[in-house]
Structures are given as structure tokens and as C-alpha cells.
């Protein structure tokens, strides 16, 4: 009984992974085919980039603030408060910035895509598109995946900057550290080896958010629960996938660093 169940759920899992891979494959074969829906791409960029900015900014700011406040006592105990900018800078640029921004976007954009495409599927808007001669995969899926892929790194950069600013404010108030000193400390501790991998990672994060959201929405079950489920599982699967990508990215970056 138990083994049967695990085999079944394993099968479900593998089919899901296979389907997503197939979906990704379709993305890569279709993305270079004309026509390219540039206008829709820009519209999606605006929706995903600009409209997430406030959320990402506020979260980044709070993270920077809280992170600094929390680590301050410990560093103080070692008399190493002067290291705060380096520590905050490295952890935000390398890890916290990308992953927090990606998770926020998985929640906002991923579920948004899942729900939007899901309801379009359920209300036959996707079919309507198909019969009116527009390839819905190109129009809906490719534009969205590209938009998340390109917008996420930018959101990450802006989120990083705001988080660092939040951290600076704490240091400025509590430790009387000037803007110039804070940021020169941050940048002196950073290397290209910190910035480049995390930027590349952000592209993959964006791709994952778009891919899973679109997959879930595009293959949504008919019915209203289908839409909810699509939105919900888009977030869950994306978050999971984000951590997997993060893990792989760290491994790969480490490998490159060693070489």
C-alpha cells in the first residue's frame, strides 16, 4: 500500500518534471521564431518590473535594516562593528538580495502569471487567441518568461541597493558612519566574484519564476479551483525551484572560484 503510494507520487512528480522540461524546451525552440511579440513583452516588463518595484524596495529596505540591527550586538561583542558594511554588503549582494527578491517575485509575479493564464485558459481566452491567428504560446508564455528573466536581475540590483541603504541608515544612526565611509567599505570588500555569479543567478531565478508560472497557468485545469490551484502551485513550485537553483549556483560558482 505504502510503496504503491510512493510509486504513484513519484510518478506524478516525474511526469510534472518531464512536462515542465518539455514546456521549457518549447520555449527555447519558439523563442527565436518570428514573429516576436515585442509590444506585449514591453507591457509585461512594465507589469513585472515597475509594478514590483515598491514591494521589492520596501522588503529590501526592511531586510537591510533588520539584518544590520540584528547582527550589530554580536559584532559589537567582538569589537568588530567596523566590519558591518563588509558583512552586510557581501551577504546582501551574494545571497540575501537575490533570493529574497526572487521569493517576493515568485509570490507576486509567479502567482500572478499562474492566475492570469489559468483564468485565460478556463474562460477560453487562450483558445480564442489561437483561433484568431495568434500563437498564444508566443504571445503569452514567451513574452512573460522573457520579461521575468530580464526584469528580475534589475529588481535584484535595485533591491540590493535599497537594502544597503537601509543598512547604512542603521549604521549612520547607531554608529555614526558616514555615507561615503559605509559604501566605500562595502565596495572595498566586494569583488567581481561576488557580483557576477549573483547576477547570473538572478537571470535563472527570473526564468524559473516565469517558466513555472506560465506552465501552471497554461496547463490549468478547467474550473475556478483550477485557477486557484494554478496560482498556488506556481508559487510553491517556484519557491522550491529557486532554492534548488540557488544551491546549484553556489556549487557552480564555487567550482569556478577554485579553477
Amino acid at each position: 500500500m505504502g510503496t504503491q503510494k510512493t510509486i504513484n507520487s513519484l510518478q506524478v512528480f516525474l511526469t510534472e518534471v518531464g512536462d515542465i522540461s518539455y514546456f521549457a524546451g518549447r520555449f527555447f525552440t519558439d523563442v527565436f521564431k518570428r514573429p516576436f511579440e515585442f509590444k506585449e513583452f514591453l507591457r509585461q516588463c512594465y507589469n513585472m518590473g515597475n509594478r514590483s518595484l515598491l514591494l521589492v524596495g520596501v522588503t529590501g529596505f526592511i531586510i537591510g535594516l533588520v539584518f544590520t540591527l540584528q547582527s550589530r550586538p554580536t559584532l559589537q561583542e567582538f569589537g568588530a562593528v567596523a566590519w558591518m558594511p563588509s558583512m552586510v554588503g557581501i551577504s546582501i549582494i551574494r545571497e540575501i538580495g537575490p533570493i529574497i527578491t526572487a521569493l517576493i517575485c515568485a509570490g507576486r509575479i509567479g502567482s500572478g502569471i499562474g492566475a492570469e493564464l489559468g483564468s485565460m485558459r478556463v474562460t477560453e481566452q487562450i483558445d480564442a487567441m489561437e483561433v484568431s491567428g495568434t500563437n498564444p504560446f508566443k504571445y503569452l508564455v514567451i513574452t512573460r518568461i522573457l520579461a521575468t528573466t530580464f526584469m528580475l536581475p534589475i529588481l535584484v540590483i535595485i533591491g540590493d541597493a535599497i537594502a544597503l541603504y537601509g543598512s547604512y541608515l542603521v549604521e549612520n544612526i547607531k554608529g555614526d558612519v558616514s555615507f561615503q565611509l559605509y559604501f566605500s567599505e562595502v565596495f572595498s570588500s566586494l569583488e567581481f566574484g561576488d557580483v557576477i555569479p549573483s547576477t547570473i543567478k538572478s537571470f535563472f531565478f527570473g526564468f524559473a519564476i516565469g517558466l513555472v508560472g506560465c506552465y501552471k497557468g497554461y496547463n490549468c485545469d478547467k474550473g475556478t479551483e483550477g485557477v486557484g490551484l494554478a496560482a498556488n502551485s506556481a508559487v510553491v513550485y517556484t519557491s522550491l525551484l529557486l532554492f534548488v537553483i540557488d544551491f546549484v549556483a553556489v556549487l557552480v560558482a564555487d567550482l569556478f572560484y577554485e579553477l
Binding site: 514573429p35 492570469e116 485565460m120 480564442a128 484568431s132 495568434t134
Partner: peptide, 28 residues
């Protein structure tokens, strides 16, 4: 050459009426 009126109308929610009507013209 074939018009299809869907059971639930299937208007594109994110577009205005004008954009909805222009949509089929894009590719045809």
C-alpha cells in the same frame, strides 16, 4: 474565414474593447 463565438465570450480581460477587436487583425 471562420468566426468563433465562444460559450463564455472569451474577451481578453486585460485589454480594452478596442484592443480586443484589434487583436484578430494583428496576424491575419
Amino acid at each position: 474565414e471562420i468566426g468563433f463565438l465562444f460559450q463564455g465570450s472569451a474577451l481578453y480581460d486585460s485589454m480594452s474593447v478596442r484592443e480586443n477587436l484589434e487583436f484578430p487583425l494583428r496576424r491575419h
